[in-house]
Write a protein that binds this DNA or RNA. Structure first.
Lengths: 111, 111
DNA sequence: CCTATATTTCGATTAAACTAGAAATTACGG
DNA sequence: CCGTAATTTCTAGTTTAATCGAAATATAGG
């Protein structure tokens, strides 16, 4: 993941409502949840929620697919993994305590 | 780390300039860097940079201490570690690929 | 087709963020 | 004290985000 993409993703997660949505989707599991389910669970007005969801989808944090008349939202784990890898590689250099697992062979192009 | 604190921290990192500042400070090492050094390295106008730094300090991403007439900025690794732990615990539940190291015994109060 | 359901788009408002020059503050050295 | 260096605060303009009701769009089922 590149600098600007990481910043954009962080910015999307950096909102109370959107972070709550993402956490809810993760808890909902890989089956995801519909917009209406999210609305009921979190109590955010539909037009506002739709706006937030479209932003999250735009940066790749979630995927949306239509199922009948409902739209299913699913968290994009790979994208979050890319962000976490970026933060660990770019922001924890030299700080042993946080080097963390050498897992996640995610490439980290550019700068 | 709690939900709102995580969101606030993510929001601060979710800005091109502030993310660059944080990355620069991490690369600069535990000795940190002065505001002037950051300014020269990143080319951000001083008043703008000062504003960003104070925001980052406000959420605990960096620490600032005066040394003579310069002000040293140091990244707060523990805070970032708290954020990463939060994301891994709250946003990767059930997704094995990302469970990552069971390290970082960071408490995660409230909701 | 028609109705009900699910979600988005529109439109307008309010609030907050970003930007940066100019002026003020703080601190060192002579 | 005074000049200079380092940084912040002030101020103001521009841009972007957040909010949400109402109207519009899709889709399913009878």
């Amino acid at each position: 993941m590149k600098h600007d993409e990481a910043a954009a993703t962080l910015a999307e997660l950096g909102n109370r409502h959107r972070l709550a949505v993402f956490r809810y989707l993760v808890k909902a599991g890989p089956g995801g949840a519909s917009v209406g389910e999210i609305q009921q669970a979190l109590g955010i007005p539909l037009s506002t929620l739709s706006h937030h969801l479209s932003r999250m989808a735009h940066v790749g944090l979630i995927d949306q697919t239509r199922h009948g008349r409902a739209i299913l939202c699913v968290p994009n784990y790979a994208h979050l993994a890319g962000l976490l890898a970026f933060l660990q590689q770019e922001c924890c250099v030299g700080h042993g305590d946080m080097a963390a697992s050498p897992a996640l062979p995610v490439e980290c192009d550019g700068d």
